[in-house]
Design a protein around this nucleic acid. Sequence first.
DNA 1: CTGTTAGCGCATTCAG
DNA 2: CTGAATGCGCTAACAG
Lengths: 350, 350
Amino acid sequence: MAKIRLKDIAQALGLSVSTVSKALRDSHEIGEDTKRRVLEFAHNHHYFPNRLAKGLKEGRSGTIGVIVCAIDNPFVSGMLEGIDRACQEKGYQIMIMQSKESFLQEQSAIELLLANGIDGLLISPALETTDFSPLLAVQQRGIPVVLFDRISDRIQTHQVGANNFKGAYDATMHLLNKRYKQLAYIHAGTELNFATQRLNGFLTALAERGIPESNYQVAELKINAQTGVPEALARALRKMMRGPARPDAILAGSDQISISCLSILTGMQVKIPQELALIGFSNTRLADVFNPPLSTISQPGEEIGYLAAVRLIGLLTGKAVRQEFETVLMDTQMHIRASSDRLKDLRVSS
Amino acid sequence: MAKIRLKDIAQALGLSVSTVSKALRDSHEIGEDTKRRVLEFAHNHHYFPNRLAKGLKEGRSGTIGVIVCAIDNPFVSGMLEGIDRACQEKGYQIMIMQSKESFLQEQSAIELLLANGIDGLLISPALETTDFSPLLAVQQRGIPVVLFDRISDRIQTHQVGANNFKGAYDATMHLLNKRYKQLAYIHAGTELNFATQRLNGFLTALAERGIPESNYQVAELKINAQTGVPEALARALRKMMRGPARPDAILAGSDQISISCLSILTGMQVKIPQELALIGFSNTRLADVFNPPLSTISQPGEEIGYLAAVRLIGLLTGKAVRQEFETVLMDTQMHIRASSDRLKDLRVSS
DNA sequence: CTGTTAGCGCATTCAG
DNA sequence: CTGAATGCGCTAACAG
């Protein structure tokens, strides 16, 4: 079971290397008979072409670079699963790098991937990233780029993300339909496209229902090196609950905020949903087991990854016409659970 | 910002390709002056050696193959994070494949990785895998293999996993110390090494305390294509709770079983921990937010991944003496929360 | 239909 | 101290 090369097959069968190569690629200029012999021998001896040599020769590597914020984020790993599935189907490899939300790390990831001869780049930009020129440079080198999850209008290419506007809009409408009267939206900075879209969804729903400014509020957490989400959130919630416009329903703008909210409010002895309803953007599969079960708006992570990879591979194989870039917005899903359902009285009666 | 090669540097500086190559590798046979010029030019033009060419030439790829059951399992992605960190430090790339717990998929993953010229293999074998001969074959090809998470004595190599015996032992002692009297251990098949270790930890603790057989039970879930964990578990729990030896404390043998237990028991209106205590092996970070907060035994996933990768890279760089394989068992951590703490009366009083 | 040749980018002999 | 030549395994143009 040693490594077997074209040369070995050629020698064993008394053929030349190039004949074997062509036979394996089913070239028309090789006789059926020879093809059969070669294919059989190759199969029996577990021949696999050396990717390095093939890539070097063909000027392509069959590898796609993937940049995400962090591989151990469950939502991210779901998207990676989708990307992996697409690449598996099409015979591509992936090379994953992490930005850790840092623009600099993202840049060096890009350089490293380029050095490794990736054929295309799949990227979910770091939160820090506002300058998209490195990505434009990648495109100019003839390497297609596709954005997923975190999309941006500062670069022209295929993009696949979630319909955050609609997700927030629907969630807000849900709260209004449940007759909550004093709403709050909590998020962590509107720099990012998706944060803005969610905010707009929230505001649009309120406007459509004619809710006056006195009946809602928006809190933007200031996160930095010293202050993490939980601390900033705890402060904001305390202020909010003691303030004049104490909310009776909160929409949380991110996975971390949603879960921290639940945990902090529980710690503050706030009864959910009796005193305060909570619904949040989150992709956790464990919302059912929370206390109380948490209403969520979730994004189809795996589909986003899958579609983005398919788009990129399309560009790679030149099937797609250039300049016909499209932005796909996948629908989010709303899961109503006890935390935003004032009718149920979670497992007290029943 | 086009692709830049050794040739380009050579031409620009009026040198030969080989001189440039040597200068970049800091060869002693190149003048300091020339080195400086080359290094500066290379840096300014973002030169990176072409990995494919380098690998082809050197007969190594600088790539490590990683096989896991599923990339979107949070525990797995934590280990991948550790692996990635180690590889980042040492300048290796990783190529990740999934077995989906299937022996066959694992085999084809191995073949694909070999075809891609990996220098070493990091594997957490599929649950199905009982035949380790494919891995032995990999070793015989001179490609080092390191097992992580799911270790086995059927192959001789470095192995890094968690001390499952001690984890189960400690958890069982914890339950006994809390004066629970009727214990149950639920797991999903003892084929795997780690399942056996956990079972042994449970039994050893009971034996040391002289608990008679009538005061404990072990339930093994029969999982198959039709029956998933939740269904099998629901059946087992119903039977258990109606049976003669109704337990007052359960130790759950896996992440999925732990969380499903909590959710099913809650659905059955069983009061936790008043009627029944629950502690389980789990790596979720959200145990605090569960209802009630779930006591867990967690494994240091990232460290396991990191250490395994370091071991493998050690073998690759020949630093380690062969035949001196070691098995590292990392300590698990026990997090006591409300679900197994009969003293607290979770957030009724406070 | 099959074989010979050249070259992808790099590291490494071996000459100068 | 520097350069010319060789080959890693493969594909593709060109001969036979």
